[in-house]
């Protein structure tokens, strides 16, 4: 009887487990495994090379370039999109005419497909007749090529990402704001607190669990971004706008150096784990859970 239940239990779990192993766990283990082998080329089969791939990684200037790009990208997108999300959430949390319309407008970038978003922005950035140049042109500014200039390419992508992410994060902050009883702000107001004090001492601390959740998501997203780059810059010029995942894609599927791709992937996963754990510890003392 017990065995029968046991079998039924496993049968029910089977479909989900199959997929999770097939597409998540097995590839992850295989990736780690592959990073210790060389890439098979032509008639040369793949052989065990130990830590050779990792040695190559440490000596690879492009890796360090895309890693630092990625850190700048994270620093540029995360605080900005969170600050913007909070501001938008505070704004649409009040009563005003056309509130639903504004909420929808803020959320629209999230609903749009990534590729469409990238193409829209590609048009904005087009030198000569893009939106940016049209506006700058009104001030007699010459042509600009934001995406073609190594100094501005990454910043241009940061702007697109902030635009895309802030509306999504806003939804979480809006939910958090609506979970705070309005009496708290009223009590603070009676105690002589103005709008900024109420935000700093009541609203923001009470939204900390959301901030933790959103910031972990934001970090993961910033390392996961690859779609925009395909359309906007293809990582160029001179890797100025290439990010870690894009480099992994290029290495693995354009140059077919799968072993080195696996090594890069392991490095990225390790980094993400460290960041997530670090965030938990950093926030832990300041997050008040109900």
């Amino acid at each position: 009887m017990l065995t029968r239940q046991w079998v039924h239990g496993w049968l029910l779990l089977m479909p989900a487990l199959t997929f999770i192993f097939l597409f998540t766990h097995i590839p992850a283990v295989v990736t780690v495994w592959n990073s210790f082998f060389s890439t098979a080329r032509g008639r040369r089969p793949s052989v065990f090379v130990g830590l050779d791939n990792y040695e190559r990684l440490i000596n690879d200037p492009v890796f360090w370039k895309v890693l630092s790009n990625n850190l700048w990208f994270a620093l540029g997108t995360i605080p900005t999109s969170i600050a913007l999300a909070i501001a938008m959430a505070l704004f649409v949390n009040r009563q005003f005419l056309g509130r639903s319309l504004v909420r929808m407008a803020y959320f629209t970038p999230t609903v749009l497909p990534l590729i469409a978003v990238a193409n829209i922005w590609l048009f904005f950035y087009t030198p000569g007749f893009g939106l940016v140049d049209q506006i700058l042109g009104a001030f007699d500014h010459g042509q600009t090529n934001l995406l073609g200039n190594p100094d501005t390419a990454l910043a241009a992508i940061v702007v697109v990402s902030v635009w895309k992410e802030a509306g999504f994060f806003m939804i979480f902050y809006l939910a958090a704001l609506q979970a705070i009883p309005p009496q708290l702000a009223e009590a603070a107001r009676i105690e002589g607190a103005g709008g900024w004090t109420i935000f700093r001492r009541i609203t923001f601390p009470l939204m900390m669990p959301t901030t933790l959740f959103v910031s972990i998501n934001a970090v993961i997203n910033s390392f996961r971004l690859v779609d925009h780059i395909f359309i906007l810059t293809a990582g160029g010029p001179d890797n100025a706008s290439s990010l870690l995942l894009y480099y992994i894609y290029e290495t693995s599927f354009r140059f077919w150096d799968t072993a080195y791709g696996a090594t890069l992937t392991v490095a990225m996963l390790a980094l993400l784990c460290l960041l997530a754990i670090g965030q938990f510890f950093l926030f832990d003392r300041r997050v008040h859970y109900k």
Partner: peptide, 20 residues
């Protein structure tokens, strides 16, 4: 005059204590 300038105190039915 807004609430923060009326110089009075108030106790709410829900107490409205700051949970954090």
């Amino acid at each position: 005059r807004p609430a923060d300038k009326r110089d009075l105190s108030m106790v709410f039915q829900s107490y409205a204590l700051f949970p954090h």
